[in-house]
Structures are given as structure tokens and as C-alpha cells.
Amino acid sequence: MAQVHDHSELFPEVMPPEPEKATLEGKNKFFGIWFFLGGETVLFASLFGVYLALKNSTAGGPSSQELFGLGLVFIMTMLLLTSSLTSVYAMYHMRNNDFKKMYLWLGITGLLGIGFLACEIYEFAHYITDYGFTFRSSAFGSAFYALVGFHGGHVLFGICWLTTLLIRNAKRGLNLYNAPKFNTFSIYWHFIDVVWVFIFSVVYLMGKVG
């Protein structure tokens, strides 16, 4: 009668249709990340507000019209939007219990994220070296780097998160313990993408033509 629990319920023979929400812990993580992103929305809204208030305070330095090039920003947008799509594919394969394909698409998601980040680093370096436009040069510079930089920091965090997940679970296959972790990452990644859509519109498009 007195048997030791071996947590076998986390490793079922047949996976349920939504493995990420099959346990209470999974459900909690699902709701938890959504609420967290609610807070993040306000965080970025504050930064957008600061940016809108300061975007014309160039203090004699370069303005947004002189700085921004929509070509690079278009490539970055494509990279990040595509990475959101590939993470959807990954979650699709997770629900079909196809571990290898999930890994493949998550890997591609990570690479696209790295590509985006590389472009952003190039963009910042370009502004700093060619225009002398820095975090300290004007209030516009401070607000720009704060907003775009916070987003870039979130991308970086997401890539580190994904890498840790992929390395840790590479040899384990899918189970009810790690499925919520992949799903949580995916939801976070979509959010980062949505924020970028707003940055693209409010910062770059409005800065160039608005």
C-alpha cells in the first residue's frame, strides 16, 4: 500500500492533446506568463510614452529622419515576424508529440532571433560611430536607446532562455514537465514580436515619414 510516488504521471505513455496545460503547474505557468506579459505591456507603454515625449528633443544632434533607414528595419521586421511563425510551427509539433520537428523549428526560431539581434547591434554601432548619436547625446537618444534597447534586451533574454531549454531537454523527449516550459517561451516570444511591430510603426515609420 505504502508506495513511493515516482512522478510517473508526468511521463504518460500517450500524451494528452494539450500537454502544456495538462498539469496544474502547466496551467499556472500558462496563466502566469500571460499576466506577466500584461505587466510587460505597461512597461513598454511607459517607454513608448517617454519616447513620444522626447523624440523631437534632439539637442542639435541628428533627428530621426536623418538617422533611420527603413531597409535594415524591414529586414529586422521580417526576421522577427518569421521567428514568431516558426515558433507557432514548433508548438504545433509539440501538440502532435513530434519532439524532433519541434526542436527543428525552435532552433530556426532562435537563429532568426540571433539574426535580428545582429542587425540591431549593427544599427546601433552605425548610429554611434557614423552619427555620434548615443545614449547620452540628447534626450531623443536616451529615449530611443531605452525603448529599442529594452526590446533588444528582451530578445537577448529570450534567446538565452531558448538555448537553455534546448540544451537541457535535448536528450529527454517531450513530457508533461517540460512541455509547459516550451509553451511559456513561445508565448513570451510572440509578445516580443508584437512589441517590435509597435516599435516599427511608432519609432521607425513615424520617425521617417510622420
Binding site: A53, L54, S57, A59, R136, S138, A139
Partner: peptide, 21 residues
């Protein structure tokens, strides 16, 4: 923190900052 410790200009009126923010 950025303004006090890292020299940014959010609240530095000379560089276009705005303290009402």
C-alpha cells in the same frame, strides 16, 4: 538611474530632457 549613474538626458533640460515625465 540612467540619468544619475550613466549620464543620459531624460531629465536633463539642457539636452532636451523633460522633468514632468
Amino acid at each position: 538611474m540612467f540619468d544619475r549613474m550613466f549620464g543620459t538626458a531624460f531629465f536633463n533640460v539642457a539636452l532636451g530632457g523633460n522633468q514632468v515625465i
